[in-house]
């Protein structure tokens, strides 16, 4: 599980798949990210935790390479973020479901399978992974909000991405399904992929192997849940977040 030699900085840098240095981003005239530096490793699930408006989405957009940045370096798999070669190797799921509402789940997936160049049999696999089997031929607009997010998530499961960047993928889902999805994220990580998941729900934090706490565009703390608890001398992550946010 988590922990182990995480403390060894040399080791972390060596395995870093995503590495960000001195990143500054302005959105709508406001500083959305201020001097952010971090690394994310492969083989584990990294959680990006912070309140709404703390810069999680902006950070993810910068990693995927769709965000105009003011200053700083973002590299993924050793390439500058946004490189053409990376478009096949990263899967990005936005917070708002980015699917075609007037198409069925299957039609949506079959289009994106065509774009990604993956075989048709991956479609069924992706639908099963997100638990949308009985809604396969339903038009997306007639689905519930949670089902729509899952349809959007399924698209990320189509290809064979080395890096998954998932923006609040479990919001509004029932607990059983949430549990299933977190198991899926860990399975993907166990296969050696890099999984970065954002959430503003504290009780999801201890499902992550490693956490990055964000507040007002800055990184407040990072480490495994156990490390964060030790450092803040508290017994729950919500309290740890408050203590560490105040200290920074």
């Amino acid at each position: 599980m988590s922990g182990g030699n995480v403390d060894s900085l040399a080791n972390v840098t060596e395995e870093a798949v995503i590495s960000i240095r001195d990143l500054d981003v302005y959105r709508g005239g406001l500083r959305a990210l201020a001097d952010v530096s971090l690394t994310v490793r492969s083989g584990i699930v990294t959680g990006l935790l912070g309140p709404s408006g703390s810069g999680k989405t902006t950070l993810m957009r910068a990693i995927v390479g769709v965000q105009i940045v003011k200053r700083g370096e973002v590299s993924v798999l050793g390439l500058p973020a946004g490189s053409v070669e990376l478009r096949k190797r990263i899967a990005y799921v936005t917070q708002a479901p980015a699917v075609y509402g007037d198409l069925t789940v299957r039609e949506n997936l079959s289009f994106f399978a065509g774009v990604l160049g993956v075989a048709e049999n991956r479609i069924q696999h992706a639908i099963t992974t997100v638990g949308l089997k009985s809604q396969t031929d339903q038009v997306v607009n007639t689905l519930s909000g949670g089902e729509r997010s899952r349809a959007s998530l399924a698209i990320a499961m189509l290809g064979d991405p080395e890096v998954l960047v998932l923006d609040e993928p479990t919001v509004g889902l029932d607990p059983v399904l949430r549990q299933d999805l977190w198991q899926t994220f860990h399975r993907l990580a166990d296969e050696g992929r890099t999984v970065l998941v954002s959430t503003h729900v504290m009780d999801e934090a201890d499902r992550c192997d490693e956490l990055i706490l964000m507040r007002e565009g800055q990184i407040v703390a990072s480490g495994s849940p156990r490390q964060l608890l030790e450092r803040s001398q508290t017994d729950n992550l919500e309290q740890a977040f408050l203590t560490l946010a105040e200290a920074s």
Partner: peptide, 11 residues
């Protein structure tokens, strides 16, 4: 709908 952004992050 965000689909353009998604497509722009794809090949």
């Amino acid at each position: 709908s965000g689909t353009l952004e998604r497509l722009m992050s794809m090949p």
